[in-house]
Amino acid sequence: MNPVRIIGRGSLAVMETLGRIILFAAISIGRGILPPYYPKQYVRQFLDIGYYSLPVVGLTAIFTGAVLALQSYTGFQRFQAESAIPTIVVLSVTRELGPVLAGLMVAGRVGASMAAELGTMRVTEQIDALSTLTTDPYRYLIMPRLIGGLVMLPLLVVVAMIIGVMGGFLVSVNQLGFQPVSYLNDTFRFLEAIDVVSGLVKAAVFGFIVALMGSYHGFNSGRGAQGVGAATTMAVVTASILILVSNYFITALFFDR
């Protein structure tokens, strides 16, 4: 087949899916902001997305901070710039690695389970059953997940930032011979509000992306076990890609000059 044609078809398909996802988000939000609200569903999502992701995100953060310190030390030693390490660690963690790695971990953990749960509900007609019980599935199932992602990921990322800096601190002090007090002073000396704020904005966007991809692919899951499996894969893959792409654009928005 003509390669131009293949590319054309592919891009049309992507645009179509994108349109569907935007429509899905619009319907969910449009209906979800109106009552009735389902507090229990919100609480469950907050716990699922936020609280139960703490171990995964915490572990990721501490080792990321630690390896950052180690890598920059061996690298920066070559031109006697070891003193930049506290700043490198804190800027990388707040601006970039905290939100991106937390987003990717949550995409794997939460996005996948959302897609699997909603997909199973779709396949076993539980979503259809909701509407026959005069309950709007967008309000009951989707909106709590979207809000959960939007709100909980920034909170997770605050924790990730603190733990990440701590990881760098521990390695620097225990292995690389830094003084604890001066390391901490250096950490905060060049840190600006925008570093943290941009990280939190990213986190909110990534959280929304993860919840939206998990919800969309689960809600529109194909039939049977195979359909649910495919939905789960798609949720994780599309969320991860969108996180990395949007990360670039948010960074550009904040720091481009």
Partner: peptide
């Protein structure tokens, strides 16, 4: 056809779903 019960809810919560939620 398959019952379509909400598997995260107890039996009575399923039965009373509409009464409670809606």
């Amino acid at each position: 056809q398959g019952g379509a019960l909400f598997d995260s809810l107890k039996v009575w919560e399923n039965v009373a779903f509409r009464l409670v939620q809606a």
